[in-house]
Amino acid sequence: MAITDVAEKLLVPPSGGTFAALASSIRRHRLASVGLIVIVVLCLLALLAPLIAPFDPYHQDLYAVLSPPSAQHWLGTDNLGRDLLSRILYGARVSLMTGLLCTFLAAAIGVPIGLLAGYTGGAMDAILMRVTDAFLCFPPLIFILAMSAALGPGLSNVILSFALFGWTGFARIVRGQALLVRELPFIEAARATGVSRFRIMWRHVFPNTLAPIIVAISITVGGAILVESGISFLGLGVQPPTASWGKELRVGFTYLEVVPLFSLAPGLMISLAVLGFNFLGDGLRDALDPRLNGFDR
């Protein structure tokens, strides 16, 4: 075994305590616990939608259009006679999948950029951060609307647009952490033993930036769900007959006085999802902030 490999094993700081602190803080943080429960329940509803949905979400019963809640249709039916509860359960799949996919694509772009900028510094840092600032100048919603006008409405355009602009937050967070970590003694020791720059970044610097990345992911997922719902509400997201919370909210808004649950039910699901991820992110932030550790929330 090379001397650099031996040195690396001795120089890497322990990381198990971070995840133990996360679990402990979530248990102690009431809002974070509630957020985690909400997220788990919503994910289970989305995964088990084919098993628990009482009807086919695309089946139309034109004799039961806009019917109120009943023993057969717990939340009533929509304007085409489709079961609203089934539509909401299947809509959870689209909204949650979009939020997670948008966030992880944005993180996949922003984390390497921020890590490279923060660790290398100098001209590379200046160039990458100016590019990041340039992207921050464009309003993401306006860009999504422009892409939809140019390429046509669709969920793929929403995901692509969010990823193209959502990475900037991850890049700035990781850069800030990398600027701190690169000056720590164990990084200096790794350089002294001859470890390559690439290996130091991914074996030593990157693991020490995971905590704020996890918090940012949790909060960004909620924001991505809100963006997808807003775009679908405008009719530029998923297209009929696919179910999504934002699209159900848009159609139900027309019949708000006749069937209130047509809009209230998907709106409540959007609110629960966004609040759940935000509560979880708040709890994770408390777990990783040394000024707040040890205080019950």
Score class of each variant (00 low, 15 high):
R130E: 09
V38F: 11
F262L: 13
A287Y: 08
A32D: 05
F206S: 11
T18S: 14
C137G: 13
G91L: 00
L272H: 02
F104G: 08
Q60N: 10
A123P: 00
P241N: 03
G122L: 01
R93E: 04
V205L: 10
A46I: 00
R93M: 07
G121Q: 01
V12I: 06
G121I: 00
L75T: 02
P69A: 10
E183Y: 00
A273C: 13
A224S: 15
S263F: 12
L45D: 03
I231S: 03
A265E: 09
M129K: 06
S232A: 11
P260W: 03
F198G: 06
G122K: 05
D133Y: 14
S156M: 15
P207R: 06
L261C: 02
V181R: 01
L96K: 05
S24M: 12
P207Y: 03
G114S: 08
A106T: 07
P13Y: 10
L44D: 06
T132D: 09
I173K: 04
D133F: 14
T193C: 07
R28E: 13
G76E: 01
S95I: 09
T132K: 10
S33G: 14
V227D: 02
L179W: 01
G121W: 01
W202H: 05
A149Q: 06
L180K: 13
I214W: 00
I217K: 06
L275I: 15
R197N: 07
L85S: 01
A126P: 04
L164R: 03
A92C: 08
H59C: 09
L234N: 08
L10A: 07
P139I: 11
P54H: 12
L226M: 11
L75H: 02
L96I: 15
T193G: 00
S148T: 15
G152H: 12
V174K: 07
G235R: 12
R30M: 09
T254Q: 13
L31R: 10
L116Q: 04
R199C: 05
R172P: 02
V12L: 11
S161N: 03
V131I: 12
V158R: 02
L75Y: 03
S67Q: 02
I144Q: 11
A273V: 09
A216D: 10
